[in-house]
Design a protein around this nucleic acid. Structure first.
Lengths: 203, 203, 203, 203
DNA sequence: CATGAATGAGACTTCATTCAT
DNA sequence: CATGAATGAAGTCTCATTCAT
């Protein structure tokens, strides 16, 4: 099989990462074993170590993948909208609806949450998260708010960073709540907060 | 008749739990070892196993302890206040300020977050969390809102559960954000969201 | 069993080292496994790691032990002799006769040879060997020669370091030859070289 | 008829062996990996396994190669000399000077030493070494001594085998010492031993 | 023949738990 | 009850060897 295309390599890596996603989501990074990933990805142990030098690297690359894919999707989604408020609606909705990514949203979410926790204890992970996350999340929201101000739709007095933080805190927290209490009517919770949020920033 | 007093036992258990709190906060439940707890608590390994049957039991009891102490404190704090809005202010502030508990707040917070994540993967933990957490958090907020409605300070149309969820999601998320970006002006973020929140429910 | 005497600990360590000696001698450091050492020492895997942080540490401590024991024995043996030539005879004989140490001489020899080879490839090992070996071997021989000069038995023109090197090279090489060709009459080889050596340095 | 010429095969094999020589010298047989050999030889892993059935075979053939080349060189060198003492001088000098072989002497030396150690633990290797080494080394020295006796230059009472052993022990040991203490003035050590040796056998 | 991706046995090491003292 | 040495299952990772292309 050797002398294999770059394409093949990328596919194999993705196959491993998707297997790892399920494992890490189900059991958590520490508890999930390489053998679990072997089982879920269908890739042999040796092959996994051809693509990743150590378990942690799988974790990091998986986080990058998840973040990048959701980032791309948000960007795509926002491009199609004009009004800032539509965009804000869209942001609120984004994180909580199934989307067409090949990555399972629930799995991605829990892995992302755990990665964030891990990062708070590990300087190396933190650096990665800092680079990825800030761009991928904080900046997007700030950008939407800034555009809204420029378009005269949003009050210019508001501190965009603070409102972006409010938004992200709410979303992150909602993820957690959803994990814990799957039965709560999250749609309604989102809608109420959405209104509240928009009301606070609307001109 | 026990050979050592119940009092002594309780003290020893607490000593272990406080050591464990630091360990779990610093490294996470899976990575922290019993030997770490030995080091941090000053209690020998054998003794630890006299008080707890397994590592997980330490985790569960620690979570109970943290939850109970913060619960007691909140209740205490709320009792001293009359207006519903004062209580809501107080709730917002509670989680983010140092408080007089013997338990370190930052440590408690990260352990609680991790426990919640663990719960979402482990039915046994989930049952414990379900019992504790709902009471200790959701119900408190709902209770404050209900009292506010009865006192005529808060709109009676609002769905108290939804607003309690909004509150908790925001707080949980803020915890995470704080772990990740310790430099952000959280006081301001809280104040803005506080205003937003109160505005939405005020009569 | 805990709260155990230092004596007990030293014994256990020695038990492990003696097991390791056999394993390393039989298979070589790289090929011998921790499980081999478990089998030969009768000490469980976990216990071994209570006494040694890693496999290499066993190797190093074993080398130290072998070196120290043979050093002590040589010193003891030399102390009982007066004439320099008796001492030189004794040195030649020392390495090739069974001695009363609890350590098997053949095993010790091959482990020492391998350790020397390893050292030439590993700076850390080299440092250890440099400290131990030089003192333990080169210095002893030089000392005997210097005393012989002072006593007027040995020519004062000779370079003691060079003759010590000749002696050690011969002995080291003889070890190797003995491993390879156990049937050769080593006693005779030693005797001839002994005469030759003494002749060269005798006043 | 073979698809590639025997000549090509021999060249490729030699290329692999020379790469392996560097690897085994640098890291030792056990620690050096096939991938190391791939890197150093520039021959792909699959190709290596076309020419050698297993790693050990590379080791054995490498040892054969080294031994044969040095054997040929010594023979060549000795042929040009007449006096037995010149030959003995030449033998002493041979092992410690750079020579025109394509094989690096230092690398060859350490690989040879390690191979000898390995042999003492492995009957298969021992058989190979027994065949090669005895011819290549012991016999050469004996032959020179015998010729010296016949030529009336060397005492006829000496046991040639014993003196050959003395010579080889000294050389082997000197190799080891050189690895361990590269700074020692080996030229002087050799010269002294040379004189000693010749003095003992001279008529 | 050449290539290098794939395989999995097996190495080292850690750590929750037990138990002799 | 307290202690910490002992245990061994189980995890991560390496690497000789195979084999599809």
């Amino acid at each position: 099989m050797p002398i294999v295309s770059e394409e093949h390599k990328r596919k194999k890596k993705r196959q491993i990462l998707i297997g790892a996603l399920t494992c890490f989501a189900k059991k958590g990074y520490e508890v999930a074993t390489i053998d679990d990933i072997v089982r879920y990805s269908g890739v042999s142990k040796g092959a996994i170590y051809n693509y990743f030098k150590k378990k942690e690297d799988i974790y990091v690359e998986l986080f990058n993948l998840i973040t990048k894919e959701s980032f791309d999707q948000i960007i795509e989604q926002l491009k199609r909208l004009n009004s800032s408020f539509d965009k804000i609606h869209s942001l609120f909705d984004f994180y909580l609806e199934e989307n067409p990514s090949s990555l399972n949203l629930n799995e991605s979410t829990i892995v992302q949450l755990e990665f964030q926790l891990s990062s708070s204890r590990n300087a190396d992970l933190m650096k990665i998260l800092d680079g990825m996350y800030k761009k991928a999340n904080l900046e997007i929201v700030i950008q939407v708010l800034v555009e809204g101000i420029q378009a005269g739709e949003i009050k210019k007095e508001i501190n965009t960073e603070i409102y972006a933080e409010i938004f992200l805190s709410f979303i992150d927290g909602l993820y957690l709540q959803k994990l814990l209490f799957p039965d709560i009517p999250f749609k309604d919770v989102i809608n109420e907060q959405k209104l509240s949020f928009i009301h606070s920033i609307k001109k």
